[in-house]
């Protein structure tokens, strides 16, 4: 599924043929096929609406939880310039979360409801953010690989059928391109301009982030039961395996330029297919991380729950103050 939304149920296991569709459904599908955007007020199948809510909210949650692993290094960034860039990058991710919650709200849910589902563990976020950031090189690797993979997935979503989602993706993609560049720039500083010790940090980061990055694209196509429906609705434009392959093909030359190697002994260029062949992904690890057994699942969720709970008095105070204010205004009008 959508990269930050790896596992989205569509509620539909088999595609309907045109003949099986109601007149409304047919008209809807024809608009989608013609590339006309669906807007919040338009009629839409209930499963389309629900699937989009799941997909967009998983994506939003990923942006918000995704602040944490990189936020971990803001106070330790090695130069004031790097600190500035990282701080604004992590702030961008919160902004992405907000645009996306906003897009989901057009489908008839509230941000607080969606966020409560994240905090209760009911709705997942991308498995990638359950891995730890252990050294500064991880900040480079995340920008390069994780934001790089995000762009690969999200550029097509700029053309997705749902108007508010597509517009949110257009805004987000511009910033993701900057995120990827700053990450790769950190890697260049470590690998090409750095000391052997710094280059070793970069290699170690690549060793740890490579496979989880490939897992970001979601399970293999053969196991993605809901993909066909999402493709027909144009809220998924390429398959998981297609995007994964594209990502690998793009990334290997970048690793070569850095002079570091992906931790895959089976990786090799295939002249015939024009793509890189690569080794087996450990899907057992993936499913375990999804289920909550990743190295940081508990910390990440706990950090979010803690922030929300610690902020309760603050949110209540602002609401109370606004109420008092409007009460005073009402009384003033009455008196006048």
């Amino acid at each position: 599924m959508s990269m930050y939304a790896q596992l989205v149920e569509t509620g539909v296991n088999q595609l309907q043929s045109r003949a099986e569709m109601s007149a409304e459904e047919r008209a809807f599908q024809e608009r989608v096929d013609a590339g006309i955007k669906i807007e919040p007020k338009d009629w839409m199948p209930e499963d389309y609406r629900k699937t989009l809510i799941r997909q967009i909210s998983q994506h939003a949650h990923s942006e918000i939880v995704g602040q944490l692993p990189e936020g971990n290094w803001i106070t330790r960034a090695p130069t004031l310039k790097r600190k500035t860039i990282l701080l604004s990058k992590v702030q961008d991710e919160a902004g992405h979360g907000l645009y996306l919650y906003g897009a989901a709200e057009t489908l008839g849910v509230t941000r607080d409801q969606l966020y409560a589902d994240l905090l209760s563990g009911k709705v997942k976020y991308s498995s990638i953010f359950n891995y730890p950031t252990l050294t500064w090189a991880d900040i480079g690797a995340i920008g390069w690989l994780v934001d790089g993979a995000a762009i690969m997935n999200q550029i097509p979503l700029c053309r997705c059928s749902y108007g508010p989602y597509s517009r949110a993706m257009i805004r987000i993609c511009k910033e993701e391109a900057f995120h990827m560049r700053q990450g790769y720039d950190i890697m260049i500083a470590l690998c090409r301009d750095g000391t052997p010790e710094q280059k070793a940090l970069a290699q170690d980061a690549l060793n740890r982030w490579w496979w989880p990055s490939l897992m970001m694209f979601g399970p293999p196509d053969a196991e993605s039961v809901h993909s066909a429906q999402s493709a027909q609705w144009k809220i998924k434009l390429f398959s998981n395996d297609e995007l994964r392959q594209k990502f690998i093909d793009q990334t290997i030359p970048q690793a070569e330029y850095l002079g570091i190697r992906v931790p895959d002994p089976e990786l090799k260029w295939n002249e015939e297919s024009g793509h890189y062949d690569f080794g087996k992904i450990d899907w057992d690890e993936f499913w375990n991380v999804v289920k909550g057994n990743g190295p940081c699942n508990r910390e990440r969720l706990r950090a979010r729950v803690q922030a929300w709970e610690d902020g309760a008095w603050f949110r209540e105070a602002l609401v109370a103050h606004a109420e008092k204010q409007s009460q005073r205004e009402a009384e003033a009008t009455k008196a006048a």
């Binding site: 918000i64 602040q67 944490l68 936020g71 803001i74 106070t75 600190k83 500035t84 701080l87 604004s88 992590v90 702030q91 919160a94 902004g95 979360g97 907000l98 950090a303 803690q306 922030a307 929300w308 610690d310 902020g311 309760a312 603050f314 949110r315």
Partner: peptide, 22 residues
Amino acid sequence: LSEWCGKGPVFEEDMALTNIAL
């Protein structure tokens, strides 16, 4: 202030405080 990044009481507040830090 940057210690707050990602831990603010509401997203908007988190972003505003990060802006000030920047």
